[in-house]
């Protein structure tokens, strides 16, 4: 669209943009800026200025630290797995000779299934009377959601639901690598592993990075499943930052809520920004 210059009626573009920009300003930007006021007063009644007390309270609270730690741990486990599994699926699919379309559909399916529709199945899988206990631990059943295994359950459900997303990105990336590269390498005697390391991984670098960023962002979406399965106060190993925020909502503690959103937002933006700068640098080499 770059070539279209000097089309008459440039002013009308502002009218096209205005509804969206005004709405974004009104419902996202302005209230976020204004909420700094909530973050520096003691409560909505007395409205005393307390400086950074809400911030130090949040940062110092055990619940916040636990939540931040759990969120980080979850990401460290989830993000790499959510890259490896989709890459494996995509590579297997490109090599499949039959029913490729059908298999593609199956791997993508969980992405569209509403979380609510699966809650009962997951309960009857990982719960105290679930089939995992029935099959593997019939004499010593455990309520896995209330043990540290809860984290594994969440990782499993997250991968089940989200692997298809990155698989689509990887399939597009794999399609962009010319088949001649592999043919050449094969003629020169490179084995499968060497081809993977020297061609696939190298030319897939931009996609790998993209899936890394998307996995990082999507990892926050696991909250929906955790909340539906285990409620607002799950086992302490899966008490996430989102739980912390959500419980401030429920308690109507807008001072802590505003303060924590002012802590989480800059941290998140800084990480995403750093990732993008890194990505630009990597992409420039291609």
């Amino acid at each position: 669209m770059r070539a279209a210059k000097r089309i008459k009626g440039e002013g009308v573009l502002i009218l096209l943009l205005l509804p969206s920009a005004a709405g974004l300003f009104m419902f996202y930007i302005a209230p976020f800026v204004i909420s700094i006021y909530n973050a520096v007063i003691d409560n909505p009644v007395t409205k005393n200025f307390v400086g950074l007390k809400n911030f130090t309270d949040v940062l110092g609270s055990e619940a916040f630290r636990m939540a931040a730690g759990n969120t980080l741990t979850f990401m460290i486990i989830c993000v790499p797995l959510n890259m490896v599994l989709p890459l494996v699926l995509a590579m297997l699919l490109t090599r499949a000779k039959t029913s490729r379309g059908f298999l593609w559909l199956i791997f993508l399916l969980p992405l569209v299934i509403p979380s609510g529709s699966m809650v009962f199945f997951w309960m009857k899988t990982f719960g105290l009377n679930g089939w995992i206990n029935a099959v593997f631990f019939p004499q010593a059943p455990a309520d896995w959601a209330n043990t540290s295994a809860a984290r594994l359950i969440i990782v499993f459900i997250f991968l089940w639901k989200n692997a298809g997303y990155n698989m689509v990105l990887f399939l597009a990336g794999l399609n962009m690598i010319p088949a001649e590269y592999y043919e050449c390498a094969a003629i020169e005697g490179a084995g499968a592993w060497r081809q993977f390391r020297m061609i696939t991984i190298v030319y897939l670098a931009p996609t790998l990075f993209l899936t890394f960023i998307m996995s990082f962002i999507n990892s926050f979406k696991a909250f929906k499943e955790i909340y539906m399965l285990f409620g607002g106060y799950p086992h302490k190993s899966i008490y996430m930052l989102q739980h912390f925020m959500y419980n401030q909502f429920s308690a109507a503690n807008y001072q802590k809520l505003a303060a924590s959103s002012y802590i989480v937002t800059p941290a998140f933006v800084a990480i995403v920004f750093a990732l993008f700068v890194l990505q630009r640098k990597i992409s420039e080499n291609f």
Partner: peptide, 18 residues
Amino acid sequence: VVIMLLPLQVTLVPNFIM
């Protein structure tokens, strides 16, 4: 883009205030 990438629980705060 930044707002798009923010986790839902974070953007819910301004939504809620408004």
